[in-house]
Amino acid sequence: MPTTALRSRRINRRERAWGLAFVTPIALQVILFSLVPVGIAVFASFTDWNSIRDTRDFVGLDNFAEFLGDKYFWIAAGNTLYMLIPIPFYLLFGILFALGSHRRTPGSTLFRVLFLLPYVSSIVALVVLWKWIFNYQYGLVNQALAAVGIQGPDWLGDPAWIKPTIVIMIIWKMIGITSIYMLAALKNIPDVYYEAARLDGASPVRMFFQITLPLLTPSIFFLTVVGMIGSLQTFVEVQLFTSDGGREYSAATITYYIWQKAFGSGQLGLASAAAFFFALVVLVLTLVQFRLSRRWVYEGE
């Protein structure tokens, strides 16, 4: 008996050692490239850290006052909210495509692969392609519009059109992956619900609104939250479509604003402060989403 206890204690010690060894790489990554950076960022937020002027003095809350008083920060904030527009659209199209796939429409498997092509391709390639297709004079889109007698807008140069162009691209990119999530959710709905409804003589439309849609709400909620967090951080599209945030700063988002401050003008302190403020806003909006979700997300019996 004592020998077994001893043996199992030795096994436990080995298990603990191996367990720790296995998680050491990721723990190192998190410490070196997340926790330490967060610490530095907290410190930087309260200094006038500037990589060009080589200053690094404590300035209290000056950074926060500076960006909150900056007209361009607020323009960027407005543009950032604008980037939420794609979410309902790709959710709607994603659900429609998932419904089509789910009822085993011929060609579904092939279509699913095709719908995911934009998602798996790099944003750089997509933007370069988009710049060509939406070219004012020779782009495919404006040529097609011209063929039916419409003068297409200057999608990329006109401050009024650059944001819609980005929005259209994001919708196009996200429909495929959204539908994959939705399809998984549809497959999880037990058939008995539909069978029971059919016995009661429910119409397909009624079944959709009474069974399918409520049971999709957890997935819709998940994708809304993830989509919101992602959309609020829109950056690459802006950086690639415009070289300076667009005419009249028309496309610049908060992340773009911060990037420009940090790596354009070297204002690391100011940029860190703005980044923290932004992270806090994203966190609050996420919590609000969770709060509101109680009203519309189906939680099961």
Partner: peptide
Amino acid sequence: LDFPHKRTIFVALLATIMIPLVVLIIPQFL
């Protein structure tokens, strides 16, 4: 496996993916 601080480490990992990239990228650069 069972090892010390398993939960703490796991929660720390979970917390880091919630931090927006823009907060990390500047200090990572440094």
